[in-house]
């Protein structure tokens, strides 16, 4: 067998439901395998750790060919909400928690969570906007320092 992975740094850069979950699942899965995990939220990915927004993440039904739905249909009011509720229901069936609970779980599992400083400055945010699981707001240099020896995964 090839060399074991000891550490991962996962960047979450998208704010749609389907943009956020893969990174969360990978971070949690890493901890489940005894792999050290760091999560870095940047650009619209910050929505996943914002108190006011994390419960309102939606599945993108427009500009998403994998939805197998005509773009014009995806634009209809309520379409995104419908797709979102369907996906949440299916995820709950396989025990994937809602984002807020997932963040708690990942934190309790020993992962570290960081917000991107450039985005925080751009959107004029502060630690008060984030859930308590967020360790700090860090710049990209610090992200690389913390990621020494890690596999970096961009989502």
């Amino acid at each position: 067998m090839s060399e074991h992975i000891n550490k991962v740094s996962i960047i979450i850069s998208k704010g749609s439901l389907e943009g956020v979950y893969p990174g969360l699942i990978m971070a949690n899965g890493a901890r489940m395998e005894g792999i050290e995990a760091t999560l870095f939220f940047t650009f619209f990915g910050l929505d996943a750790i914002m108190k006011k927004r994390l419960k309102k993440l939606k599945v993108a039904t427009v500009g998403n060919p994998a939805m197998h739905m005509p773009t014009m249909l995806g634009m209809l009011p309520g379409m995104s909400a419908f797709a979102t509720s369907m996906m949440k229901k299916e995820m709950d069936k396989i025990d994937i928690p809602p984002v807020d609970e997932f963040l708690e779980m990942i934190k309790d599992a020993g992962a570290s969570l960081y917000a991107c400083k450039a985005t925080v400055d751009m959107f004029k945010l502060s630690m008060d906007d984030f859930v308590p699981q967020v360790d700090a707001i860090i710049n990209v240099g610090t992200f690389y320092e913390l990621s020494a020896g890690a596999q970096i995964i961009f989502t």
């Binding site: 901890r31 489940m32 005894g34 025990d95 708690e104 779980m105 309790d108 599992a109």
Partner: peptide, 23 residues
């Protein structure tokens, strides 16, 4: 799952990782 151990079994996730480290 770990979530089920927590929700149904009342086992805190932190404790679980402490008691059974590395997976």
């Amino acid at each position: 799952t770990i979530r089920r151990m927590n929700k149904v079994g009342g086992i805190a996730t932190k404790d679980l990782y402490d008691w059974f480290p590395q997976g």
